[in-house]
Design a protein around this nucleic acid. Structure first.
Length: 554
RNA sequence: GCGCCUGUAGCUCAGUUGGAUAGAGCAACUGCCUUCUAAGCAGUGGGUCAGGGGUUCGAAUCCCUUCAGGCGCGCCA
Protein backbone atom coordinates (compact mmCIF):
# COMPACT_ATOMS: atom_id res chain seq x y z
CA UNK A 1 0.00 0.00 0.00
CA UNK A 2 2.73 2.40 1.01
CA UNK A 3 4.89 1.27 -1.87
CA UNK A 4 2.33 2.57 -4.31
CA UNK A 5 2.87 6.06 -3.01
CA UNK A 6 6.64 5.81 -2.66
CA UNK A 7 7.01 4.30 -6.12
CA UNK A 8 4.83 7.00 -7.58
CA UNK A 9 6.84 9.74 -5.93
CA UNK A 10 10.16 8.18 -6.81
CA UNK A 11 9.13 7.93 -10.44
CA UNK A 12 8.08 11.55 -10.55
CA UNK A 13 11.28 12.70 -8.86
CA UNK A 14 13.43 10.85 -11.36
CA UNK A 15 11.44 12.37 -14.19
CA UNK A 16 12.34 15.73 -12.69
CA UNK A 17 15.99 14.78 -12.58
CA UNK A 18 16.03 14.72 -8.79
CA UNK A 19 17.68 11.89 -6.91
CA UNK A 20 14.98 10.52 -4.55
CA UNK A 21 15.80 10.50 -0.84
CA UNK A 22 16.50 7.15 0.79
CA UNK A 23 13.21 7.10 2.56
CA UNK A 24 9.99 8.68 1.37
CA UNK A 25 7.83 9.38 4.38
CA UNK A 26 4.28 8.22 4.02
CA UNK A 27 1.64 8.80 6.63
CA UNK A 28 -2.06 8.63 7.19
CA UNK A 29 -3.47 12.16 7.49
CA UNK A 30 -5.05 12.93 10.82
CA UNK A 31 -8.16 14.22 9.16
CA UNK A 32 -9.47 11.69 6.69
CA UNK A 33 -11.12 14.40 4.62
CA UNK A 34 -7.62 15.32 3.52
CA UNK A 35 -7.01 11.96 1.90
CA UNK A 36 -6.03 8.37 2.54
CA UNK A 37 -2.29 8.71 2.38
CA UNK A 38 0.02 11.65 2.44
CA UNK A 39 3.65 12.55 2.05
CA UNK A 40 5.55 15.61 3.23
CA UNK A 41 8.39 14.85 0.83
CA UNK A 42 8.12 18.20 -0.95
CA UNK A 43 8.72 19.99 2.32
CA UNK A 44 11.66 17.78 3.17
CA UNK A 45 13.19 18.54 -0.21
CA UNK A 46 12.65 22.28 0.12
CA UNK A 47 15.89 22.69 2.03
CA UNK A 48 18.05 20.81 -0.45
CA UNK A 49 16.47 22.25 -3.57
CA UNK A 50 16.10 25.73 -2.16
CA UNK A 51 12.63 26.08 -3.57
CA UNK A 52 9.26 26.64 -1.93
CA UNK A 53 7.63 23.34 -0.87
CA UNK A 54 4.41 23.98 -2.78
CA UNK A 55 6.30 24.58 -5.99
CA UNK A 56 8.19 21.31 -5.57
CA UNK A 57 4.93 19.55 -4.85
CA UNK A 58 3.43 21.01 -8.02
CA UNK A 59 6.44 19.88 -10.05
CA UNK A 60 6.14 16.37 -8.64
CA UNK A 61 2.44 16.33 -9.38
CA UNK A 62 3.03 17.31 -13.01
CA UNK A 63 5.41 14.40 -13.53
CA UNK A 64 3.29 11.67 -12.03
CA UNK A 65 2.65 8.95 -14.55
CA UNK A 66 -0.91 9.24 -15.86
CA UNK A 67 -1.54 5.52 -16.27
CA UNK A 68 -0.29 4.91 -12.78
CA UNK A 69 -2.42 7.64 -11.38
CA UNK A 70 -5.53 6.36 -13.11
CA UNK A 71 -5.16 2.83 -11.88
CA UNK A 72 -4.56 3.62 -8.21
CA UNK A 73 -5.75 7.06 -7.25
CA UNK A 74 -9.01 8.89 -7.14
CA UNK A 75 -7.18 12.15 -6.66
CA UNK A 76 -3.78 13.59 -5.83
CA UNK A 77 -3.74 17.05 -4.34
CA UNK A 78 -1.41 19.57 -2.81
CA UNK A 79 -2.53 20.88 0.54
CA UNK A 80 -1.39 22.99 3.45
CA UNK A 81 2.28 23.94 3.48
CA UNK A 82 3.14 21.36 0.80
CA UNK A 83 1.67 17.98 1.60
CA UNK A 84 0.84 15.76 -1.32
CA UNK A 85 -2.36 13.92 -0.48
CA UNK A 86 -3.53 10.77 -2.17
CA UNK A 87 -7.01 9.39 -2.28
CA UNK A 88 -7.24 5.74 -3.24
CA UNK A 89 -9.52 4.51 -5.94
CA UNK A 90 -12.46 2.34 -4.90
CA UNK A 91 -11.67 -0.47 -7.33
CA UNK A 92 -8.09 -0.53 -6.16
CA UNK A 93 -9.16 -0.86 -2.53
CA UNK A 94 -11.52 -3.72 -3.38
CA UNK A 95 -8.82 -5.48 -5.29
CA UNK A 96 -6.26 -5.07 -2.54
CA UNK A 97 -8.70 -6.44 0.03
CA UNK A 98 -9.50 -9.30 -2.28
CA UNK A 99 -5.82 -10.17 -2.41
CA UNK A 100 -5.64 -10.23 1.36
CA UNK A 101 -8.56 -12.65 1.48
CA UNK A 102 -7.47 -14.81 -1.40
CA UNK A 103 -4.32 -15.93 0.36
CA UNK A 104 -5.75 -16.05 3.84
CA UNK A 105 -3.90 -13.02 5.15
CA UNK A 106 -0.44 -14.37 4.33
CA UNK A 107 0.65 -11.11 2.76
CA UNK A 108 -0.24 -9.01 5.79
CA UNK A 109 3.22 -9.59 7.16
CA UNK A 110 6.14 -8.08 5.38
CA UNK A 111 9.42 -9.87 5.19
CA UNK A 112 11.88 -7.26 6.33
CA UNK A 113 14.18 -9.64 8.20
CA UNK A 114 15.04 -11.85 5.24
CA UNK A 115 16.25 -14.55 7.55
CA UNK A 116 18.67 -12.40 9.52
CA UNK A 117 19.45 -14.01 12.87
CA UNK A 118 18.37 -12.09 15.94
CA UNK A 119 18.73 -13.14 19.52
CA UNK A 120 16.35 -11.79 22.11
CA UNK A 121 17.37 -12.26 25.70
CA UNK A 122 14.71 -11.49 28.26
CA UNK A 123 13.43 -12.19 31.77
CA UNK A 124 16.73 -13.78 32.87
CA UNK A 125 15.54 -13.71 36.47
CA UNK A 126 17.81 -15.08 39.17
CA UNK A 127 16.65 -18.60 40.05
CA UNK A 128 16.41 -17.61 43.68
CA UNK A 129 12.72 -16.91 43.94
CA UNK A 130 9.45 -16.87 42.05
CA UNK A 131 8.88 -14.43 39.21
CA UNK A 132 7.28 -11.15 40.18
CA UNK A 133 5.26 -8.74 38.13
CA UNK A 134 8.29 -6.86 36.84
CA UNK A 135 9.53 -10.08 35.28
CA UNK A 136 6.07 -10.48 33.82
CA UNK A 137 6.40 -7.20 32.00
CA UNK A 138 9.75 -8.26 30.57
CA UNK A 139 8.28 -11.61 29.61
CA UNK A 140 5.27 -10.07 27.86
CA UNK A 141 7.30 -7.51 25.94
CA UNK A 142 10.18 -9.85 25.11
CA UNK A 143 7.87 -12.56 23.93
CA UNK A 144 5.75 -10.22 21.81
CA UNK A 145 8.87 -8.65 20.33
CA UNK A 146 10.23 -12.08 19.45
CA UNK A 147 6.93 -13.03 17.87
CA UNK A 148 6.88 -9.77 15.95
CA UNK A 149 10.40 -10.14 14.59
CA UNK A 150 9.79 -13.73 13.67
CA UNK A 151 6.63 -12.74 11.86
CA UNK A 152 8.69 -10.11 10.04
CA UNK A 153 11.03 -12.71 8.65
CA UNK A 154 13.84 -12.71 11.20
CA UNK A 155 15.35 -15.90 12.48
CA UNK A 156 14.72 -15.36 16.17
CA UNK A 157 16.29 -17.14 19.13
CA UNK A 158 14.74 -16.54 22.54
CA UNK A 159 17.18 -16.88 25.35
CA UNK A 160 16.99 -16.91 29.13
CA UNK A 161 20.26 -16.33 30.96
CA UNK A 162 20.52 -18.11 34.29
CA UNK A 163 22.63 -16.43 36.94
CA UNK A 164 23.46 -19.59 38.79
CA UNK A 165 27.13 -19.14 39.55
CA UNK A 166 27.31 -16.38 42.06
CA UNK A 167 26.59 -15.51 45.61
CA UNK A 168 22.84 -15.37 45.14
CA UNK A 169 22.47 -19.02 44.34
CA UNK A 170 24.85 -19.88 47.15
CA UNK A 171 22.61 -17.92 49.45
CA UNK A 172 19.59 -19.73 48.10
CA UNK A 173 21.22 -23.06 48.85
CA UNK A 174 22.19 -21.92 52.31
CA UNK A 175 18.68 -20.68 53.04
CA UNK A 176 17.17 -24.00 51.99
CA UNK A 177 19.84 -25.83 53.95
CA UNK A 178 18.93 -23.94 57.10
CA UNK A 179 15.21 -24.64 56.65
CA UNK A 180 15.97 -28.29 55.98
CA UNK A 181 17.87 -28.70 59.22
CA UNK A 182 15.17 -26.79 61.06
CA UNK A 183 12.46 -29.10 59.72
CA UNK A 184 14.45 -32.09 60.93
CA UNK A 185 14.82 -30.54 64.36
CA UNK A 186 18.45 -29.55 64.02
CA UNK A 187 19.22 -26.04 65.14
CA UNK A 188 20.79 -24.07 62.33
CA UNK A 189 21.27 -20.30 62.10
CA UNK A 190 19.42 -18.73 59.21
CA UNK A 191 21.72 -16.67 56.98
CA UNK A 192 21.64 -12.94 57.68
CA UNK A 193 20.44 -11.89 54.24
CA UNK A 194 18.94 -15.21 53.23
CA UNK A 195 15.71 -15.70 51.32
CA UNK A 196 12.76 -15.88 53.65
CA UNK A 197 9.81 -16.71 51.45
CA UNK A 198 7.67 -19.78 52.05
CA UNK A 199 9.01 -21.30 48.86
CA UNK A 200 12.31 -21.92 50.64
CA UNK A 201 10.63 -24.28 53.07
CA UNK A 202 8.81 -25.90 50.14
CA UNK A 203 12.13 -26.75 48.55
CA UNK A 204 13.43 -28.08 51.88
CA UNK A 205 10.33 -30.30 52.21
CA UNK A 206 10.87 -31.60 48.70
CA UNK A 207 14.42 -32.56 49.61
CA UNK A 208 13.16 -34.37 52.67
CA UNK A 209 10.64 -36.28 50.62
CA UNK A 210 13.32 -37.28 48.12
CA UNK A 211 16.43 -37.74 50.24
CA UNK A 212 15.01 -38.04 53.73
CA UNK A 213 17.40 -37.10 56.51
CA UNK A 214 20.50 -37.96 54.50
CA UNK A 215 21.92 -34.47 55.15
CA UNK A 216 20.67 -34.13 58.71
CA UNK A 217 23.35 -32.47 60.76
CA UNK A 218 25.71 -32.31 57.81
CA UNK A 219 27.95 -29.34 57.23
CA UNK A 220 27.24 -26.94 54.39
CA UNK A 221 30.79 -27.48 53.19
CA UNK A 222 29.96 -31.02 52.16
CA UNK A 223 26.25 -30.71 51.40
CA UNK A 224 26.31 -27.23 49.86
CA UNK A 225 26.69 -28.24 46.24
CA UNK A 226 23.72 -30.55 46.49
CA UNK A 227 21.50 -27.94 48.15
CA UNK A 228 22.48 -25.22 45.69
CA UNK A 229 21.98 -27.47 42.71
CA UNK A 230 18.71 -28.92 43.90
CA UNK A 231 17.27 -25.53 44.86
CA UNK A 232 18.35 -23.93 41.61
CA UNK A 233 16.83 -26.73 39.55
CA UNK A 234 13.57 -26.68 41.43
CA UNK A 235 13.34 -22.90 41.27
CA UNK A 236 14.08 -22.95 37.57
CA UNK A 237 11.40 -25.54 36.93
CA UNK A 238 8.92 -23.32 38.70
CA UNK A 239 10.02 -20.27 36.71
CA UNK A 240 9.70 -22.21 33.50
CA UNK A 241 6.26 -23.46 34.49
CA UNK A 242 5.11 -19.95 35.41
CA UNK A 243 6.34 -18.61 32.09
CA UNK A 244 4.66 -21.45 30.23
CA UNK A 245 1.41 -20.63 32.03
CA UNK A 246 1.95 -17.06 30.88
CA UNK A 247 2.39 -18.34 27.34
CA UNK A 248 6.08 -17.53 27.12
CA UNK A 249 8.69 -20.01 25.92
CA UNK A 250 12.43 -19.96 25.34
CA UNK A 251 14.72 -21.69 22.86
CA UNK A 252 17.83 -21.57 25.00
CA UNK A 253 18.37 -21.52 28.73
CA UNK A 254 21.97 -20.46 29.12
CA UNK A 255 23.60 -21.26 32.44
CA UNK A 256 26.25 -18.93 33.79
CA UNK A 257 27.78 -21.77 35.74
CA UNK A 258 28.22 -23.68 32.52
CA UNK A 259 30.20 -20.78 31.05
CA UNK A 260 32.66 -21.17 33.91
CA UNK A 261 32.67 -24.94 33.63
CA UNK A 262 33.65 -24.80 30.00
CA UNK A 263 36.38 -22.29 30.69
CA UNK A 264 34.67 -19.66 28.59
CA UNK A 265 35.08 -16.98 31.22
CA UNK A 266 38.77 -17.65 31.59
CA UNK A 267 39.25 -17.85 27.83
CA UNK A 268 37.51 -14.54 27.34
CA UNK A 269 39.75 -12.87 29.87
CA UNK A 270 42.84 -14.31 28.18
CA UNK A 271 41.54 -13.10 24.84
CA UNK A 272 41.06 -9.57 26.12
CA UNK A 273 44.39 -9.69 27.90
CA UNK A 274 46.13 -10.62 24.66
CA UNK A 275 44.52 -7.62 23.04
CA UNK A 276 45.83 -5.39 25.80
CA UNK A 277 42.47 -4.47 27.29
CA UNK A 278 43.21 -5.97 30.70
CA UNK A 279 45.56 -4.74 33.38
CA UNK A 280 46.36 -5.52 36.99
CA UNK A 281 46.03 -3.03 39.79
CA UNK A 282 45.73 -3.49 43.57
CA UNK A 283 45.89 -7.23 43.05
CA UNK A 284 42.74 -7.15 40.95
CA UNK A 285 42.24 -7.56 37.21
CA UNK A 286 40.65 -4.62 35.43
CA UNK A 287 39.00 -4.24 32.07
CA UNK A 288 39.97 -0.98 30.41
CA UNK A 289 36.39 0.12 29.77
CA UNK A 290 37.32 3.79 29.59
CA UNK A 291 39.08 3.07 26.31
CA UNK A 292 35.65 2.32 24.89
CA UNK A 293 33.61 5.17 26.25
CA UNK A 294 32.67 3.90 29.69
CA UNK A 295 32.98 6.18 32.73
CA UNK A 296 35.48 4.06 34.59
CA UNK A 297 37.47 0.89 34.27
CA UNK A 298 35.78 -2.20 35.70
CA UNK A 299 37.06 -4.99 37.88
CA UNK A 300 36.60 -8.46 36.45
CA UNK A 301 38.64 -10.46 38.95
CA UNK A 302 38.67 -9.26 42.52
CA UNK A 303 41.79 -9.17 44.65
CA UNK A 304 40.57 -12.30 46.44
CA UNK A 305 40.57 -14.16 43.14
CA UNK A 306 36.79 -14.20 42.72
CA UNK A 307 35.31 -13.29 39.38
CA UNK A 308 32.84 -10.43 39.29
CA UNK A 309 29.46 -10.76 37.69
CA UNK A 310 30.76 -8.60 34.86
CA UNK A 311 33.44 -11.17 33.99
CA UNK A 312 30.92 -13.85 33.13
CA UNK A 313 28.74 -11.28 31.44
CA UNK A 314 31.55 -10.44 29.03
CA UNK A 315 32.02 -14.12 28.34
CA UNK A 316 28.30 -14.49 27.83
CA UNK A 317 28.19 -11.65 25.34
CA UNK A 318 31.24 -13.00 23.58
CA UNK A 319 29.40 -16.25 23.15
CA UNK A 320 26.48 -14.32 21.75
CA UNK A 321 28.40 -12.25 19.22
CA UNK A 322 30.52 -15.24 18.22
CA UNK A 323 27.25 -17.03 17.62
CA UNK A 324 26.82 -15.03 14.45
CA UNK A 325 23.71 -13.09 15.33
CA UNK A 326 23.17 -9.99 13.25
CA UNK A 327 21.54 -8.34 16.22
CA UNK A 328 21.44 -8.95 19.93
CA UNK A 329 18.50 -7.57 21.84
CA UNK A 330 18.62 -7.50 25.62
CA UNK A 331 15.61 -6.61 27.67
CA UNK A 332 16.80 -5.33 30.99
CA UNK A 333 15.09 -3.90 34.01
CA UNK A 334 15.57 -0.15 33.99
CA UNK A 335 17.59 -0.39 37.19
CA UNK A 336 20.37 -1.96 35.11
CA UNK A 337 20.73 0.99 32.76
CA UNK A 338 24.11 1.85 34.22
CA UNK A 339 25.32 -1.43 32.82
CA UNK A 340 24.76 -0.68 29.16
CA UNK A 341 27.93 1.28 28.54
CA UNK A 342 30.24 -1.29 30.03
CA UNK A 343 28.75 -4.19 28.14
CA UNK A 344 28.88 -2.25 24.90
CA UNK A 345 32.47 -1.37 25.71
CA UNK A 346 33.21 -5.05 26.18
CA UNK A 347 31.66 -5.93 22.84
CA UNK A 348 33.78 -3.33 21.13
CA UNK A 349 36.88 -4.57 22.91
CA UNK A 350 36.08 -8.05 21.65
CA UNK A 351 36.33 -6.63 18.15
CA UNK A 352 32.68 -6.24 17.27
CA UNK A 353 30.49 -3.30 16.46
CA UNK A 354 28.92 -2.14 19.69
CA UNK A 355 25.74 -1.27 17.82
CA UNK A 356 25.10 -4.92 17.34
CA UNK A 357 23.73 -4.93 20.87
CA UNK A 358 20.44 -3.19 21.41
CA UNK A 359 19.30 -2.84 24.98
CA UNK A 360 15.62 -2.28 25.62
CA UNK A 361 14.98 -1.03 29.10
CA UNK A 362 11.82 -2.21 30.72
CA UNK A 363 10.69 0.17 33.40
CA UNK A 364 9.61 -0.81 36.86
CA UNK A 365 6.06 -1.85 37.56
CA UNK A 366 4.27 -0.11 40.39
CA UNK A 367 1.86 -2.57 41.85
CA UNK A 368 -1.27 -1.00 43.27
CA UNK A 369 -4.47 -2.27 44.72
CA UNK A 370 -7.32 0.19 44.64
CA UNK A 371 -4.94 3.08 44.12
CA UNK A 372 -2.72 2.13 47.06
CA UNK A 373 0.77 0.73 46.62
CA UNK A 374 1.17 -2.94 47.49
CA UNK A 375 4.05 -3.24 49.89
CA UNK A 376 6.68 -5.65 48.76
CA UNK A 377 9.79 -6.73 50.50
CA UNK A 378 11.99 -9.34 48.94
CA UNK A 379 13.94 -9.69 52.16
CA UNK A 380 10.90 -10.64 54.16
CA UNK A 381 9.72 -12.78 51.28
CA UNK A 382 6.60 -10.71 50.84
CA UNK A 383 5.86 -9.99 47.23
CA UNK A 384 3.14 -10.52 44.74
CA UNK A 385 4.21 -13.09 42.20
CA UNK A 386 3.44 -13.19 38.53
CA UNK A 387 1.50 -16.38 39.11
CA UNK A 388 -0.71 -14.72 41.69
CA UNK A 389 -1.45 -11.85 39.33
CA UNK A 390 -2.20 -14.27 36.51
CA UNK A 391 -4.60 -16.15 38.74
CA UNK A 392 -6.26 -12.98 39.91
CA UNK A 393 -6.62 -10.99 36.70
CA UNK A 394 -5.79 -13.48 33.95
CA UNK A 395 -2.83 -13.92 31.64
CA UNK A 396 -4.38 -12.20 28.63
CA UNK A 397 -5.32 -9.08 30.57
CA UNK A 398 -1.94 -8.94 32.26
CA UNK A 399 -0.11 -9.21 28.97
CA UNK A 400 -2.34 -6.73 27.22
CA UNK A 401 -1.79 -4.13 29.92
CA UNK A 402 1.95 -4.52 29.54
CA UNK A 403 1.67 -4.32 25.79
CA UNK A 404 -0.35 -1.12 25.71
CA UNK A 405 2.59 0.80 27.12
CA UNK A 406 5.96 1.70 25.75
CA UNK A 407 8.42 -0.48 27.58
CA UNK A 408 10.37 2.50 28.89
CA UNK A 409 7.41 4.22 30.46
CA UNK A 410 6.78 3.83 34.16
CA UNK A 411 3.69 1.77 34.73
CA UNK A 412 1.08 1.63 37.43
CA UNK A 413 -0.50 -1.79 37.56
CA UNK A 414 -3.61 -1.61 39.67
CA UNK A 415 -4.97 -5.05 40.50
CA UNK A 416 -8.44 -3.71 41.18
CA UNK A 417 -8.60 -1.81 37.92
CA UNK A 418 -7.24 -4.75 35.96
CA UNK A 419 -9.69 -7.14 37.56
CA UNK A 420 -12.85 -5.24 38.48
CA UNK A 421 -13.15 -3.37 35.23
CA UNK A 422 -12.57 -6.59 33.36
CA UNK A 423 -15.76 -6.04 31.44
CA UNK A 424 -14.41 -2.69 30.27
CA UNK A 425 -10.93 -3.94 29.68
CA UNK A 426 -9.39 -3.16 26.29
CA UNK A 427 -8.25 -6.73 25.81
CA UNK A 428 -11.85 -7.94 25.91
CA UNK A 429 -12.87 -5.25 23.49
CA UNK A 430 -10.47 -6.65 20.93
CA UNK A 431 -11.16 -10.29 21.69
CA UNK A 432 -14.88 -9.63 21.61
CA UNK A 433 -14.66 -8.33 18.07
CA UNK A 434 -13.13 -11.63 17.03
CA UNK A 435 -15.71 -13.64 18.99
CA UNK A 436 -18.53 -11.66 17.43
CA UNK A 437 -17.25 -12.34 13.95
CA UNK A 438 -17.10 -16.03 14.76
CA UNK A 439 -20.69 -15.76 15.86
CA UNK A 440 -21.62 -14.11 12.59
CA UNK A 441 -20.11 -17.00 10.68
CA UNK A 442 -21.94 -19.54 12.81
CA UNK A 443 -25.14 -17.73 11.99
CA UNK A 444 -24.25 -17.49 8.31
CA UNK A 445 -23.52 -21.20 8.19
CA UNK A 446 -27.04 -21.90 9.43
CA UNK A 447 -28.30 -19.85 6.53
CA UNK A 448 -26.19 -21.87 4.18
CA UNK A 449 -23.42 -19.35 3.69
CA UNK A 450 -20.16 -20.63 5.04
CA UNK A 451 -16.57 -19.67 4.67
CA UNK A 452 -16.48 -21.68 1.45
CA UNK A 453 -18.59 -19.13 -0.33
CA UNK A 454 -16.03 -16.43 0.38
CA UNK A 455 -13.33 -18.50 -1.24
CA UNK A 456 -14.64 -18.02 -4.73
CA UNK A 457 -15.56 -14.39 -4.35
CA UNK A 458 -14.58 -11.98 -7.10
CA UNK A 459 -13.10 -8.53 -6.51
CA UNK A 460 -16.14 -6.89 -8.04
CA UNK A 461 -18.38 -8.26 -5.27
CA UNK A 462 -16.28 -6.33 -2.76
CA UNK A 463 -17.14 -3.28 -4.80
CA UNK A 464 -20.62 -3.52 -3.27
CA UNK A 465 -19.19 -2.31 0.01
CA UNK A 466 -20.13 1.34 -0.29
CA UNK A 467 -21.12 2.31 3.24
CA UNK A 468 -18.72 4.87 4.75
CA UNK A 469 -18.00 2.51 7.64
CA UNK A 470 -17.12 -0.24 5.21
CA UNK A 471 -14.77 1.90 3.20
CA UNK A 472 -13.06 3.12 6.36
CA UNK A 473 -12.58 -0.42 7.62
CA UNK A 474 -11.16 -1.56 4.28
CA UNK A 475 -8.64 1.25 4.25
CA UNK A 476 -7.70 0.59 7.85
CA UNK A 477 -7.18 -3.08 7.14
CA UNK A 478 -4.91 -2.25 4.26
CA UNK A 479 -2.80 -0.12 6.59
CA UNK A 480 -2.01 -3.12 8.77
CA UNK A 481 1.16 -4.08 6.88
CA UNK A 482 2.44 -0.53 7.33
CA UNK A 483 1.83 -0.64 11.08
CA UNK A 484 3.32 -4.10 11.25
CA UNK A 485 6.46 -3.01 9.45
CA UNK A 486 6.94 0.15 11.49
CA UNK A 487 6.38 -1.81 14.66
CA UNK A 488 8.99 -4.39 13.72
CA UNK A 489 11.52 -1.80 12.57
CA UNK A 490 11.14 0.16 15.79
CA UNK A 491 11.19 -3.04 17.85
CA UNK A 492 7.99 -1.79 19.48
CA UNK A 493 5.23 -4.38 19.71
CA UNK A 494 2.87 -2.00 21.51
CA UNK A 495 2.04 -0.34 18.21
CA UNK A 496 0.24 -3.51 17.19
CA UNK A 497 -1.84 -3.31 20.36
CA UNK A 498 -3.07 0.15 19.52
CA UNK A 499 -3.85 -0.75 15.98
CA UNK A 500 -5.95 -3.71 17.12
CA UNK A 501 -7.94 -1.47 19.41
CA UNK A 502 -8.56 0.89 16.52
CA UNK A 503 -9.74 -1.80 14.15
CA UNK A 504 -11.99 -3.27 16.84
CA UNK A 505 -13.23 0.25 17.44
CA UNK A 506 -14.32 0.42 13.80
CA UNK A 507 -15.82 -3.03 13.67
CA UNK A 508 -18.16 -2.76 16.66
CA UNK A 509 -19.99 0.37 15.46
CA UNK A 510 -20.25 -1.14 11.98
CA UNK A 511 -21.71 -4.33 13.41
CA UNK A 512 -24.19 -2.33 15.39
CA UNK A 513 -25.38 -0.25 12.48
CA UNK A 514 -25.38 -2.71 9.63
CA UNK A 515 -26.57 -6.23 9.32
CA UNK A 516 -23.96 -8.55 7.90
CA UNK A 517 -26.14 -11.55 7.10
CA UNK A 518 -29.21 -10.30 5.37
CA UNK A 519 -32.08 -12.20 3.79
CA UNK A 520 -32.51 -9.67 1.03
CA UNK A 521 -29.18 -9.39 -0.64
CA UNK A 522 -27.07 -12.53 -1.04
CA UNK A 523 -24.39 -10.64 -2.96
CA UNK A 524 -24.08 -7.95 -0.34
CA UNK A 525 -24.09 -10.54 2.42
CA UNK A 526 -21.22 -12.26 0.72
CA UNK A 527 -19.29 -9.02 0.41
CA UNK A 528 -19.88 -8.18 4.08
CA UNK A 529 -18.89 -11.64 5.21
CA UNK A 530 -15.70 -11.19 3.25
CA UNK A 531 -15.08 -7.87 4.94
CA UNK A 532 -15.51 -9.18 8.47
CA UNK A 533 -13.42 -12.19 7.56
CA UNK A 534 -10.63 -9.81 6.66
CA UNK A 535 -11.11 -8.06 10.00
CA UNK A 536 -10.86 -11.40 11.72
CA UNK A 537 -7.68 -12.29 9.83
CA UNK A 538 -6.03 -9.09 10.95
CA UNK A 539 -7.24 -9.37 14.54
CA UNK A 540 -5.95 -12.90 14.83
CA UNK A 541 -2.66 -12.01 13.22
CA UNK A 542 -2.11 -9.17 15.67
CA UNK A 543 -3.25 -11.09 18.72
CA UNK A 544 -1.02 -13.97 17.79
CA UNK A 545 1.96 -11.62 17.71
CA UNK A 546 1.05 -10.19 21.09
CA UNK A 547 0.66 -13.67 22.51
CA UNK A 548 -2.92 -12.99 23.50
CA UNK A 549 -5.57 -15.62 22.83
CA UNK A 550 -8.42 -15.11 20.39
CA UNK A 551 -11.34 -17.02 21.95
CA UNK A 552 -13.99 -18.46 19.63
CA UNK A 553 -16.78 -17.38 21.95
CA UNK A 554 -17.02 -15.10 24.93
C1' G B 1 27.25 15.88 42.76
C1' C B 2 27.12 12.95 37.88
C1' G B 3 24.29 9.72 34.48
C1' C B 4 19.69 7.30 32.52
C1' C B 5 14.16 7.13 32.22
C1' U B 6 9.59 9.73 32.78
C1' G B 7 6.31 14.36 32.94
C1' U B 8 0.37 14.96 27.41
C1' A B 9 -7.56 15.53 29.54
C1' G B 10 -9.85 14.24 36.62
C1' C B 11 -7.20 8.85 36.18
C1' U B 12 -4.22 5.23 33.02
C1' C B 13 -1.67 5.95 28.64
C1' A B 14 -0.88 6.55 22.85
C1' G B 15 1.00 10.11 19.50
C1' U B 16 3.12 6.91 12.75
C1' U B 17 11.15 8.36 14.36
C1' G B 18 10.23 16.63 12.82
C1' G B 19 4.37 17.31 9.74
C1' A B 20 -1.62 19.68 8.94
C1' U B 21 -6.92 21.79 13.88
C1' A B 22 -2.92 16.92 19.96
C1' G B 23 -5.90 11.27 20.38
C1' A B 24 -7.93 6.58 22.89
C1' G B 25 -9.70 3.97 27.15
C1' C B 26 -11.50 4.65 32.06
C1' A B 27 -14.41 7.79 35.25
C1' A B 28 -19.27 11.37 34.72
C1' C B 29 -24.18 12.40 32.38
C1' U B 30 -28.26 10.79 28.61
C1' G B 31 -30.46 7.17 25.47
C1' C B 32 -30.46 1.84 22.77
C1' C B 33 -31.40 -5.53 23.71
C1' U B 34 -38.64 -9.95 20.41
C1' U B 35 -32.80 -9.07 15.49
C1' C B 36 -25.63 -12.00 13.42
C1' U B 37 -23.23 -12.05 21.28
C1' A B 38 -25.23 -5.30 25.31
C1' A B 39 -17.74 -7.80 27.27
C1' G B 40 -21.49 -3.79 22.41
C1' C B 41 -23.57 1.00 20.15
C1' A B 42 -25.14 6.43 19.79
C1' G B 43 -24.61 11.31 22.02
C1' U B 44 -22.27 15.23 25.68
C1' G B 45 -18.03 17.67 28.23
C1' G B 46 -12.74 17.73 29.19
C1' G B 47 -5.72 20.41 27.33
C1' U B 48 -0.59 26.43 29.30
C1' C B 49 1.71 18.69 25.79
C1' A B 50 5.56 20.36 33.62
C1' G B 51 7.87 25.87 33.01
C1' G B 52 11.29 28.94 30.07
C1' G B 53 14.64 29.70 25.96
C1' G B 54 16.65 27.92 21.16
C1' U B 55 17.14 25.17 16.17
C1' U B 56 13.43 25.84 11.01
C1' C B 57 8.99 26.36 6.42
C1' G B 58 6.90 23.42 10.85
C1' A B 59 8.36 21.03 17.66
C1' A B 60 4.49 17.02 22.32
C1' U B 61 8.79 15.02 19.29
C1' C B 62 15.55 17.64 18.42
C1' C B 63 19.21 21.02 21.65
C1' C B 64 19.99 24.03 26.31
C1' U B 65 18.03 25.19 31.09
C1' U B 66 14.79 25.05 35.52
C1' C B 67 11.28 22.17 38.33
C1' A B 68 8.98 17.34 39.84
C1' G B 69 8.96 11.85 40.25
C1' G B 70 11.65 7.15 39.54
C1' C B 71 16.26 4.46 38.94
C1' G B 72 21.46 3.96 38.86
C1' C B 73 26.52 5.60 40.11
C1' G B 74 31.04 -0.87 44.73
C1' C B 75 37.00 -5.29 44.18
C1' C B 76 27.64 -6.33 45.22
C1' A B 77 24.62 -9.55 42.16
Amino acid sequence: MVEIVTDTINGALRALGIEPPERIEVEVPKDESLGDLSTPVAMSLAKVLKQPPRKIAADILSKIDEARKNSYFESIEIAGPGFINFRLKGEFISKALWEVLSNGGKNLRKNIGRGARVQVEFVSANPTGPLHLGHGRGAAVGSALSNLLKAAGFDVTREFYINDAGRQVALLGLSVFARYQELLGVECPFPEDGYRGDYIADIAKEIISQAGDKYKGAGFDSAGEFFKGFSRDMMLRQIEADLAAFGVHFDIWQSEKELYGRGEVENTIQYLRAKGHIYEKDKALWFRATAFGDEKDRVIVKSDGQYTYFASDIAYHKKKVDGGYAELINLWGADHHGYIQRVKAAIEALGYDRERLKVILVQMVNLLRGGKPVQMSKRAGEFVTLREVMEEVGADTTKFIFLTRRSDSHLDFDLEVAKESSAENPVFYVQYANARINSIFRHAAEKGMGMESIGGISPSVLGLLKEPEEVRIMKKLLMYPMVFEASALAREPHRITYYLQEIAGMFHPYYNRHRIVSETGPELTLARLALVEAVRLVLRDGLEILGVTAPERM
